[in-house]
Design a protein around this nucleic acid. Structure first.
Length: 185
DNA sequence: CTTAGGATCGCCT
DNA sequence: GGCGATCCTAAGC
């Protein structure tokens, strides 16, 4: 258990529980408002075709980070879950920025006006998450996780930006949050 | 407000 | 050699 989250649970349960949880990287971060679940049996998942050098962290211990580069430009942060070797994870898609706002704006540059952490790539840029964090434990520096303060209304819907298993409703968000990457229907 | 297209690099076939 | 769990810009309603 880290910050009240059981990372040994199936990815869609972890994804739902993570909404409202606080995450910081070197003191910069905020509240998680949007996640997506991926599983070994899921054609849209990086782990679907088995372990490789790239996705190795996904098959490591739960409660660790899996970071990968998307389209040669954007880093994306995932939390590994389920049991060791299973290859399941949760993509962190958006945060409500709370700590280190100046640093976030600095890292995001002029584009900060369009949202500091409203997307997987933006969030990693704002928190300075890169390949260097791949495989790192979420229970130790530079990561800090803290339990959600109270109950949160969670909404679910189809995942974004994938071409397979498009209709699987494994995207979760904090209901009514203005910090989502895109609204839920 | 919505949509279409380009950027750009590491991984897999 | 092709493609992607994305983001930004510009153009058209």
């Amino acid at each position: 258990m880290i910050a009240g989250i059981d990372f040994g649970a199936p990815s869609h349960e972890v994804a739902r529980c993570l909404i409202g949880t606080f995450v910081l990287v070197d003191g910069v971060g905020g509240r998680i408002v949007e996640t997506e679940a991926y599983d070994r049996t899921d054609p849209a998942s990086h782990s679907f075709s088995g372990p490789t050098e790239r996705n190795g962290a996904m098959f490591g211990a739960p409660g660790h980070a899996y970071v990968y580069l998307s389209h040669g430009i954007h880093w994306c942060l995932n939390f590994v879950c389920r049991e060791e070797g299973h290859g399941a994870g949760v993509l962190i898609r958006a945060l409500e920025p709370l700590a280190g706002l100046d640093l976030m704006r600095q890292r995001r540059g002029l584009d900060a006006m369009r949202g500091l952490c409203s997307g997987p790539g933006k969030l990693c840029q704002a928190l300075a998450v890169t390949r260097a964090h791949n495989g790192a434990s979420l229970a130790a520096a530079p990561f800090t996780l803290a339990a959600a303060d109270g109950e949160h209304a969670v909404v679910a819907g189809p995942r974004i930006g994938i071409s397979k298993a498009v209709e699987v409703p494994w995207r979760f968000g904090l209901a009514g949050s203005p910090f989502l990457s895109r609204p839920f229907r």
